[in-house]
Amino acid sequence: MNRQSRREHLLRVRDFVLTYGFILVMVMIFLLFSVTTNNFFTLKNIMAILHTAAPLMMLASGLALVIMTAKLDISVGTIMFLSCGTGIVLIVRHGMPILLGLVVTVIIGILLGMLNGFIVVILRVNPLIATMGTLIALRGIGLLVTDSRVIDLPEVLRRMGNARVGPVFIDILVALAILLIVHIVHTRTRFGRHVMALGNGVDIAERLGVRVGRVTFVTFVLSGFFASIAGIFSTFQVGAVTPTLGFGAEFSAIALIVIGGISLFGGEGTIIPGLILGALTLTIIESGLNFMGASPYAYPFVRGAIIFIAMYADSLKVFVRPQVHVTGED
């Protein structure tokens, strides 16, 4: 028994290293920046890092569920834009009460998620192609709704962007709350387990009685829902809806999801600590570059390199995973 539990322990260590290899990288980077620059390892800077990461974490928590089913939703950045654009236009130009406008924003996010779900589940379009279609088309509608102009938020909402409880920004708290809820949904509900089952193979899941279509549909709806929330907080930070809101956000989100150990092949990964670590790694690297005074043009390059390495590590995992014999005898 003792031997077995030790072996299990080793297995977990191996899984951990394979899954979170990036943490080691992150710790090293963190130390590097702490040593080479002043003021990096300060409460203020850490809060700033988390503040930047907050909308991305919200976005990723919905998208992560889609990716765990081995599907992809690349329209989330556009959903951020269209849902917020519409909501803010209603508030600013048509005098809709602020709270109602925000509720409408979220409802639009849900509806757009349902649209993706419909195309993928009912029309059986490949999810990458389906969401690429909505990615392009919905941004067009968004630009129409906002006249391709920057729309400033009302003063009340703009203040929300930098509101804090003590030293902690509100959006950090919201992001952590969302992560916690999604984590519980993922690990402790049948729906969450069925998401993982889908990632292990649609055929198997179906044979075991998982309602494949319904689970897939719900993951897309949740992805749209969290995209609209991420959009709201991202808008608060900027203080306006700009025509580029959410542009490319899907790829940042996918990067942090993969860095956080969630496999694009599905069925693998955790929300906590996975997503949090992924978000921290990504933002620490960028904020470190900022501290070092790197050229802004270096950012996309570094981000691209990180995404590439993360994906490579992900596909590598499939090959290096050794078969370990945990016997059930004696």
């Binding site: 993982m196 990632g199 292990n200 055929d203 198997i204 899941a205 044979r207 069925g267 693998e268």
Partner: peptide, 9 residues
């Protein structure tokens, strides 16, 4: 022969 199990779970 090919088992209907979910390997990551």
């Amino acid at each position: 022969q090919e088992m209907a199990l979910m390997p990551t779970m």
